[in-house]
Simulated scan of single mutants.
Amino acid sequence: MAVPIPTDVERFMAMGTRIELHRFGAAGADDALLAARRAIEAVDDALTIHRPSATTALNERLLAGETAPVDDPVLFDALVAIDAVHEATFGLFDPAADRRFAVAGWRGIIFDRAAARLCATTPVAFDFGGFGKGFALDRAGAVLRAAGIVSACLSAGESSIAVIGEHPLGGGWPFAVPHPSDPDDSLVQVELIDQSLSISATVGAGTAAPDRAAMLRPDDRAVITAPRCAVAVARTGALAEAMSTALLVADPERADRLIDQDRANRFLFDLPCATARASSARMALQ
């Protein structure tokens, strides 16, 4: 007779989407999921632009051409992470890219980490978008690991997923990315162990404001309107989110370069025919 695996779940709304935190096994502190929820809510409070926050205060100073102190530790850590993933994506991920301004945002920002302050050569404003979800899952995952959790699955709106350890039945956590026009088909199937998954697309919910960073190529400010879907797997949610966004807006040459760096974990599909730019995507479905 099979022994049931202890499970626990925390469901709530944050960052404009449904969050689910699933814990498996008896290990770990009993209040770990609640602590992870608090970590996600702290990211939401710091990075949101839809109500007063540390980010809206930062944006007001930067738009006014003033030096902006970064007093919030969560926002500071997010900016440190952005500095790293901006470089890793050839500058294609830029949460300050905005068609209203003539220059891509992050390139015009001076980030003084020692003094914890920003200044910009031109008006800029941050919109963390999907990056915020991946960053929040990273912080929640860190809380769970510190509490002794060895198997968990964290989801933010189903397009941002992070897993801790192996599946409770052993091996990787299997995920299939559905085809947006055919629910019986999938674009790609992946298995995760201690990794994060991000899905970005130019079709479907969340694409109503294309002028901001998620669908804007930073260097030439081209808005990407062709039907596309990008999938990225990485060790952190922050990198996975940045990479899926970068793939979505990339020109063909840079898309190929990004995919070639990690062909098993980066995929770009042109819809509705869902032809993968990377051969590894086709192989994963065989």
Rank of each mutant, 00 (worst) to 15 (best):
G141A: 15
G141Y: 06
V143K: 13
A147D: 02
A147R: 05
G148E: 01
S151K: 01
A152P: 09
C153G: 15
S155Y: 02
A156P: 10
G157P: 11
E158M: 13
S160R: 08
A162R: 14
V163Y: 15
I164A: 15
H167A: 14
L169A: 07
L169M: 08
G172M: 08
P174F: 02
F175V: 07
A176F: 14
V177R: 09
V177L: 03
V177W: 00
P178C: 08
P180S: 00
S181M: 14
D182H: 05
P183L: 15
D184I: 06
S186Y: 12
V188W: 13
V190F: 14
E191Y: 12
E191D: 07
L192I: 03
Q195G: 10
S196G: 04
S198V: 06
T202H: 15
T202Q: 15
G206V: 08
A208T: 03
A208C: 01
D211S: 12
D211I: 09
A213W: 08
A214Q: 13
A214D: 15
A214K: 05
M215H: 11
D219H: 02
R221Y: 08
R221W: 08
I224V: 10
I224K: 10
T225F: 10
A226R: 14
A226P: 10
P227G: 00
P227Q: 00
C229A: 12
V231H: 10
A232H: 02
A234F: 03
T236H: 12
G237F: 02
A238V: 01
A238R: 02
L239K: 00
A240F: 03
E241A: 02
E241W: 01
M243F: 07
S244G: 03
T245Q: 08
A246F: 09
A250I: 12
D251K: 11
D251N: 15
P252G: 05
E253M: 12
E253G: 05
R254Y: 13
R254C: 07
L258D: 04
L258E: 06
I259S: 06
Q261D: 00
R263I: 01
N265M: 05
R266K: 01
R266F: 00
